[in-house]
Design a protein around this nucleic acid. Structure first.
Lengths: 246, 246
DNA sequence: GTCTATAGCCAGATAGAC
DNA sequence: GTCTATCTGGCTATAGAC
């Protein structure tokens, strides 16, 4: 009984994966708005109605693809972070940013699905929120680890507006991080800016303008890190910072 | 004869405008990928084939909408710049950025059309390049004017990679600006980052994270300006800088 | 320039046999 | 779970009358 159920579930998982794979292929060809259950079924040698056993509607298939994309990108970011564990904060920051860009270049259509214009008529369910935050959390971890080694940021020029600090404070509690609110707010902004760089490259705004894409990106990302203050900091892994004192 | 031709041309212009208006309305409802000549015609009380006298194909209509969007956004940016003519460089920078954000918030679907994921199966013709650069040129003008008042940027920390400088040099010549290449490269990066901020807000990435959108944006944009060095500079309009000397 | 008509496609979703 | 069949709608684009 359990063996049969196991076999059935395995088959179900395999077919589900095949459907998503084919759907991803079509995403590249036609775009999210035109993703069609029928076309997917056709290509898989199935009949359209059979797909409804796996995904109750087109939008559910879309949701699955979106979650998968967020998870894949998030995992790429986290792996890059793990690999750079013993590096300096700036290098860890750069590693995560590069991983994001590399993933986006490798899977431009899935990237567009999550960071491009929203699919019209589709509204993302709650389930997408958590996977969507993984990249941001990786970046916050870099800054948080760096901060934990000691205060690395001097004054704060004009302080952030109170409303911004309130938002950052709320986020801080929800995430359970120790990063001070002003620094968290800056990290969030840097995150948006990072994706702006990737978007411009991927969506063609750099055509005829920036050809040395990688060098341009690396430099911009380095400046982002410096803007946050990551350069004024010792390597994060050691624990006690030797570059700054509290 | 010329009167008739004039009347005909007027009518043609009016109908063309009506088609584009309705198409923009549908853009909001269904998205660019599903923009349909038939639906536009239906709503206008025309028959679909009649539209082909105005736009030879669906893609041509799309091109017209894209160019209009770039032009409208560019004009908003340029007007903001003109209005802030006598302000400090940082204030002019902020004015342009705010104009971009305001336009995007007012016309999110047209914004998505030009700065969101590319429409699948559609490739932008050459004619879109020039209108697409207007916002960037406005930002470059701010930095250029500021720079013209005197050197406002101290060293350059690690210098930009040579490949980046080559790109910037080419761009500099093409645009005919006097801005030094390293500064131009930084301005281009800041431009991409600006649109990253707008995208995140518009495409929902700030949901549940940033509520004080305006304050957050203003602050991020101010930091962008400072990153370029615009804060170390006198008002631009006067000509002779009093805040820095070459 | 607008109309009718038509060709040749496509889609999402459901019913009911097996 | 998969199939056939079907409903109901959509689309781009063209031909040819008026």
């Amino acid at each position: 009984m359990t063996a049969i159920r196991g076999a059935r579930e395995r088959a179900r998982i395999e077919v589900t994966a095949a459907i998503k794979d084919e759907a991803r292929r079509q995403l590249a060809a036609a775009g999210a708005a035109k993703l069609s259950l029928r076309a997917v079924a056709r290509e898989l040698g199935m009949v359209s109605s059979a797909l409804y056993r796996y995904f109750p509607s087109r939008d559910d298939l879309l949701t699955a693809l979106i979650i998968d994309a967020y998870d894949a990108l998030g995992e790429a970011a986290e792996q890059a972070l793990a690999k750079a564990f013993h590096d300096t904060p700036v290098d860890r920051w750069t590693a995560v940013c590069r991983a994001v860009r590399a993933w986006a270049l490798a899977r431009p259509h899935e990237y567009g699905l999550i960071y491009g214009s929203p699919v019209p008529g589709y509204s993302a369910p709650e389930a997408t929120i958590e996977p969507a935050s993984r990249v941001g959390l990786a970046l916050i971890a870099v800054v948080g680890d760096a901060h934990a080694t000691g205060v690395f940021r001097v004054p704060d020029e004009p302080p952030a507006p109170e409303a911004v600090l309130r938002d950052a404070g709320r986020l801080r509690e929800r995430l359970g991080v120790t990063l001070p609110a002003p620094l968290l707010a800056e990290t969030v902004a840097a995150c948006a800016q990072l994706f702006g760089l990737v978007n411009f490259e991927l969506f063609g705004q750099f055509n005829r303008v920036v050809e040395a894409r990688e060098e341009f990106f690396d430099r911009a990302v380095l400046r982002l890190a410096r803007g946050i203050g990551l350069d004024r900091c010792a390597p994060a892994a050691a624990g006690g910072g030797d570059g700054a004192g509290a």
